[in-house]
Design a protein around this nucleic acid. Sequence first.
RNA 1: GCCCGGAUGGCGGAAUGGCAGACGCUGAGGUCUUAAAAACCUCUGUCCCAAGGGACGUGUGGGUUCGAAUCCCACUCCGGGCACCA
Length: 851
Amino acid sequence: MRQGTGLRRRGCGERLRCGRHLSYLRESGVADADISQRYPCWPMSYDHRTIEAKWQQRWATERTFSVSVDESRPKFYNVSMYPYPSGELHMGHLRNYTYVDLLTRYRTMQGYNVLSPMGWDSFGLPAENLAIETGIHPRVSTESQIEAMKGQLRSLGAVYDWDRELASHQPEYYRWDQWLFLKLYERGLAYKEKAPVNWCPNDQTVLANEQVVDGHCERCGAQVERRELSQWFFRITEYADRLLDDLDRLDEWPDRVRTMQRNWIGRSEGASFTMQVADTDLAFEVFTTRPDTIFGMTFAVLAPEHPLVEEMVAGTEVEEEVMGYRRRAASMSEMDRVAEGEKSGVFTGRYAFNPVNERKVPIYIADYVLMGYGTGAIMAVPGEDQRDWDFAEKYGVDIIRTVQPPEDFEGKAYTGEGVAINSDFLDGMDRETAIDTMASWLEERKVGGPTLNYRLRDWLISRQRYWGCPIPMIECGECGLVPVPEEELPVELPDIDDFRPEGQAPLAAVESFVNTTCPRCGGPALRETDTMDTFVDSSWYYLRYTDPNNADAIFDRDKADYWMPIDQYIGGVEHAVLHLLYARFVTKVLHDMGLVSVEEPFARLFTQGMLVKDGAKMSKSRGNVVAPDPYYERFGADAVRLFELFMGPPTDDAIWSDHGVEGTSRFLDRLWDAVTGEIGEIHPGSPTDPDRDLRAETHRTIQKVTTDIDRFAFNTAVPALMTLTNLLVDRLREGLSREVFDEVVGILLHLLSPMAPHVAHELWEMTGHGTMLATEPWPAWDADLAKRDVVTMIIQVNGKVRDKVQVDADISSDDAETIARERDRIRDWVDGGEVRKVIVREPNLVNFVVS
RNA sequence: GCCCGGAUGGCGGAAUGGCAGACGCUGAGGUCUUAAAAACCUCUGUCCCAAGGGACGUGUGGGUUCGAAUCCCACUCCGGGCACCA
C-alpha cells in the first residue's frame, strides 16, 4: 500500500525482499543478480501479468490479426526478416519486433488489411553444431527453440497471423526449395562446376563469397582456405544487370543499402580484346576499363591460376620458377596476398602482341591479378595505373604516359582526365572519346570490343552439412546428372546419429540415402549429398506466407499478387547484401517463370540500428545480452515496448538502459491512475478555457503521433503521449469536465494502442467500451481544434531574443511590428541606435536590425 | 586509399533556417511518513549578478544570412561499407 497521495500501488513495500519477485527469479531460473538487486520490488498501479495474459489470449482466440485476401480493403504486407530460431530473444531483437507490431496495429486501425506473418529460418549450423556437441538431434533442439521464441514474442504482445507460420526444416516447406532448385536447373540457372571455393576448416563446409569477410568465415571467424571442389551454383550473374538497374526503382530503400548492393554487383564498363602469344598459337583475352590507354601497354599480366600459364611455360627454362610461384600464390589466401604490400610476379619468358601496334610486350604472372575478375589477364599500363606502375618500377619495365597529366602533377601513375598522347590515332582526344574510338576500332578488326564486367560472382549454394535442404539431384554412371522427378519431392533429410562432417557432407555416409536408382535409366545411382545454403530457404519465404499450406504449388499466383510486394520490410543492415540480393534474384526468376507479377519483393525497406550495451553490440557471443523475461515480469511488456520505441531514432544504434524502462513504466502508471480516476477530479460541468486548451492539445497530439509514426519517428511519438498525459494530470488536479475527459482519454488510448497495447485495451474496456480497441478506427484530428488561437511571438534585436509576447495567431504584419516596437524591453535595446531594417515573420517573430 | 553516415547538458535524445536542450533518465532540495520505499512539488548547460537581468554555449576554424545545431567550404575525431576489381 502506498501512502501520501491516497493512490494504491500493487508493490509490496519491502525494500530488500519481495517474496513474489524473488520466487519468480528462483522459479524461472533467471540469473540476473543485477536487476533483482535493483528492483527488489517495483510497485505498479496495475496488475500487468493478468491484463497481459488476458489480452494476449483474446487476440489469439478472436483471431484478431488473422487475415485473408480481401479486395475491399487496401492491403498492407508487413514482414520482419525471417529469424533464425536461436531460442533466446534479447532486447535488440525486441526492438525490431516492437516496430513491426506497432505497424501491424497502426495500419489495422487505419483500415488496412494487414498481413503480418512469422516463421523460422530453421536450418543452419548452430543447431547442427549443438548436435555434434550434445548428440541432440537438430530437429529436437530447433523445435524447442521455436516454441521458446514464440513464447517470448507472445509475451511482448506481438501479434501475428500464426495460421501462416512456416519453418524451413519442415519437409512441407523445403519440398519447394527443391522444386525451386529444379526449376532453376531447367532454366540453366543452376549448374555444377569444379571451381576454387572458400572452405571453412572449422565449419567443414564451403562458403559463398558473400560469407567471407576479410578472409574469415562470417559465422565462426576461422581463416578461410581455398579448395578446388565441384559445387552447385545459381547463375545470379545472369541477372546482374537487372539487379543493378532495378535498384533505381527502389526509392523507398535506404540509399546506403542500395549503394552497398551497387558496389557488390560492381558493374564496370570497358573493353576486352585478344592478345596473341608470340611463337605459339596461344592467345588470351584481357579486360580493361581504359582502352584509351592501350598504346601505353608495356607488359601483360596473367593471374597465377590462369589456365594458359602451364602451357606457356611447359618445357622452358622458367617452367619450374613459374609453377613454383603459382603454387605459393595458390596456398595463400587473398587476404595474405594483399597484405604482402609489395607487388610480386615472375616473367614467363613469353611475349604477346599489342593488337594496336603489334608491339611485343613481356608476359608476367603476378598475384595482383585475380583469376576471379574479368578474364584473369590484364594489359598493364603503368603510366595510368598505380598498380602497374609499382610493378613496372620493381621489375624494370618501361613506362609510357598516354594521357597528358597537368603541369603541376607530381604523382606516379596519372589516373585523372586529360588528352591522349603517344597514342597514334587517339592523340588529342579526351578520355571518353578515346575510349569509344578504341572500342570501335577493336570491334572493327574483330579482336575485341566494348564489354561489361561484374564483380558479382555466381552464388555458390552447396554446403557439406547435414542440417539443410538436400539438393534434389542424382548422379548416374550412365546418364550423368539427373534431376529428381518433381513428383518424388521432397527428398527427405534422413535421420542420423553422427553429425560430424569430415570433409564431405554427413549425408554421404548414409548409405540408404545415397544409393538410389536413376530416374532415367533405372540403373544404380547416387544422390547428391550436399545441402543448400540456408539463404536459399530465406529467399522466397515471404511468397510462401501468402499461401502457406498449398500442397500442390509453391504458392497461388492470385494470392501472391494480392499481397505482394511487401509494403514494409524490417531487419538488420547486416543483410544489406546477402539476403536482400538473393531474395531479389529469386523473385525475378519466379517472375520470369510467370509465377508472380512483381519483380521486386520489398517495396519499402527499413534497417534498424543495433542495440548497444557496455560499448558493444548486444549479442550472445559478446555475453552482453539483456533477456526480456525479467523485465516483462517487473515492468510488464508495455513498459518494455515503450522504452524500445523511446530510446532513440530507430535507424540509429541505441544504448540499453534499465532506468529508461523505469521511466516508461512510471508513465504508464501515471496514465493508469489518471484514467481510472485515481488522480484529481472529474466534474459534470461544461468545459472551462483550460479544458478546451487540453482538448486542442489532444488534437495536436493526434497529428503529431500520426505523422511521427508515418516517418518512423517513434522516439518522438512516445514523448508526445507523455506530454499529453502530463497535461491531463495537471487538468485533473484542478478539476476537469467529464465531456473533455472522455474525449481526451479515448483519443489517448487509441494513440497508445499500437505502442502499449495491453494497458490501452484494458483501460478502454474499463472506461466502459465493449469494442476491441485493436480494430477501432485510428483517430483523425480536427484541424480547427488543433489550430492555435494565440501564439508566442519572439522579438529579436540583431538576431538575439530580447522579449516574448502572446499574440493572436492571425495577427497582421503591421500589428506584429507595432506591438514589438512598443515593448519596454525592446525600447531599451533599440534606443540610441538607428533601426535599419525590420524583419517580420508574423505571428512568430519580429527582428529589429539596429546599428 | 575511396564512398557513406555521425558529433547537441551529467546520460539517452528533441529541435531541418526563427525561443537550443522537448520528453525521459540521473542528481540536489522539499512535502507526506516514527522511518524508509513509493508518490508528489521545486531546481538541475556554463559563467557573472543582491536582484531585475546579462554573457557564453550544439566537435574545430571560416563563410552565407536580419537570423545557423540546421545551408556552404576546410579540418579533427568516431562509426559503417568497399578495396591490387584492371
